[in-house]
């Protein structure tokens, strides 16, 4: 009898504790959006990092990826994106990818040119001889249609670029605005081929699709009908060539771009 009583107590206590966990789990879910409210400043984390700055920057980089992906999936707000990249780059001021990825996300997803420029300026200050940060700044300025400033930053990037001379070519193209689509396509292709970053690759696909769609809309406006395919756009001079990424070509079907 005593044994049975103990057994019943075990079952009941286990059941009640599971119920507690279940009810608190639901309550906690409603707070997930505010999790990053308590994210401390980079200077503070630097102080308590005990020499493990790079390690912590990596952890936050992964956390940032999870935050970005999670918010994108549920179409949530990305208001802490700048803070997150700011902290990562406080911890590791040489983390170039954090500046460039952050700069692009802030501009493209948060539509904040100001924050994007602020992060990239910090990147240029901390990595004065790196060509990629000013190059990305130039490209974002180009996307924001600030061609004059974009040209200047491409020129700055070209001063530090050692091998390819791409930044200089981009600076030239920027001056000749009519070659805009070609420059943009080349940039996205280059970005796609040079990064293993999944999100940046998605951006490259999206970027090229936008260029094609822009050309198609222009074609429709001028010719009164949708172009049959991308080759028509190339032949009629609306696109410089048929773009491809990773050996896969883009397709234009009834006003929709597929890859």
């Amino acid at each position: 009898m005593k044994k049975l009583g103990g057994f019943v107590i075990i079952i009941i206590s286990l059941f009640v504790s599971v119920l507690f966990v279940k009810s608190f789990e639901d309550r906690k879910k409603s707070f997930t959006g505010e999790k990053l409210l308590f994210f401390p400043s980079g200077k503070f984390i630097q102080g308590v990092a005990c020499g493990y700055n790079n390690f912590l920057a990596d952890l936050l980089w992964i956390r940032g990826g999870v935050y970005y992906g999670g918010q994108k999936l549920k179409h949530g707000s990305l208001e802490y994106l700048y803070h997150m990249f700011n902290v990562i780059t406080d911890l590791d001021p040489k983390f170039v990818n954090a500046y460039t990825t952050g700069g692009m996300f802030l501009f493209d997803d948060l539509h904040s040119l100001e924050m994007s420029m602020k992060l990239l300026d910090k990147g240029i200050y901390n990595n004065p001889t790196n060509w990629y940060v000013p190059f990305m700044k130039g490209f974002i300025l180009y996307l924001a249609e600030k061609y004059d400033m974009a040209y200047r930053w491409f020129m700055v990037a070209s001063l530090f670029e050692t091998k390819r001379g791409m930044a200089f070519k981009f600076a030239n193209w920027c001056l000749q605005k009519e070659k805009g689509p070609e420059m943009t396509l080349k940039f996205w292709e280059d970005l796609y081929n040079s990064t293993g970053n999944k999100w940046m690759r998605e951006k490259a696909v999206k970027g090229i699709s936008r260029v094609i769609l822009y050309a198609a809309v222009k074609y429709r406006r001028e010719k009164g009908e949708w172009p049959e395919n991308i080759v028509v756009l190339v032949k009629s001079g609306y696109l410089p060539y048929v773009p491809s990424l990773g050996g896969k070509y883009f397709i234009l079907k009834e006003g929709e771009v597929l890859w």
Binding site: D58, I62, G65, T101, G196, N197, K198, W199
Partner: peptide, 10 residues
């Protein structure tokens, strides 16, 4: 897989 292109670094 979750290092977003920074596997070497991580």
């Amino acid at each position: 897989p979750i290092s977003i292109g920074e596997s070497y670094r991580v």
